Simulated scan of single mutants.
Amino acid sequence: MIGKKMLKNKVLALSSPGGHWVQLCRLIPAFKASDVVYACTYNKASELSDDDGYYVIGDISRDSIHRFFSVTAGIVKILKKEKPTVIITTGALPGLITIFLGRLFGIKTIWLDSIANSEKISMSGVIASYLAHNCFTQWESLAGERIKFIGRVI
């Protein structure tokens, strides 16, 4: 493009630990053309290089909802500092909070429901289907009007 700067997407890739993180890491090759920063509820994982930007976020679940404000404040700090153009999350509640905040900040959002949810979409996934710009399931039988199936990451 002559006279215009090509803008590179800045991606915030965020998840809860365990299987959510494993699934997010399976997407790393898809991010190679973007500037990516990662966030999870535990210390930097071995899947990432020393050069990868990484944030530890507060953990929260239905059983620890009292942490809502502190977790939300931490995510807002990341969004303000990093200014991502896209948020992608594999869940769970920290990802849902980030999707909501991303919408408030005008950021494109993607929710990928966990492959572990093979019989029904997770509660967070159902809520995300109303909030996220794009919402995906990894099970074809669970796809619908707001939640699409385009394949599995595992």
Rank of each mutant, 00 (worst) to 15 (best):
D63G: 10
G19F: 02
P94L: 08
W139I: 12
D35V: 06
D59R: 14
A39K: 08
L27I: 05
K77N: 14
W21L: 15
W139H: 15
F149K: 08
I57Q: 08
I97S: 11
R146E: 07
D35M: 02
I87S: 03
A116S: 13
A73F: 13
S34L: 02
R26K: 15
G144I: 07
I28D: 04
L142A: 01
C135Y: 09
S124P: 04
L131W: 10
S124M: 08
G144V: 01
I115L: 15
V37T: 13
G106S: 07
V11T: 11
T90Q: 05
S70D: 11
L93N: 08
M123A: 12
E140N: 12
K120G: 10
D52P: 06
S16T: 14
K80Q: 13
K77R: 15
G144L: 08
V11D: 10
S49L: 09
V36Q: 02
L24Y: 08
I150V: 15
H20W: 07
A33C: 04
G53V: 03
T72F: 10
T85G: 00
A128Q: 03
F31K: 06
W139T: 11
V153P: 00
K148R: 13
K8G: 00
A132R: 00
L93C: 08
T41H: 02
R67M: 13
F105L: 10
I121A: 03
Y130M: 02
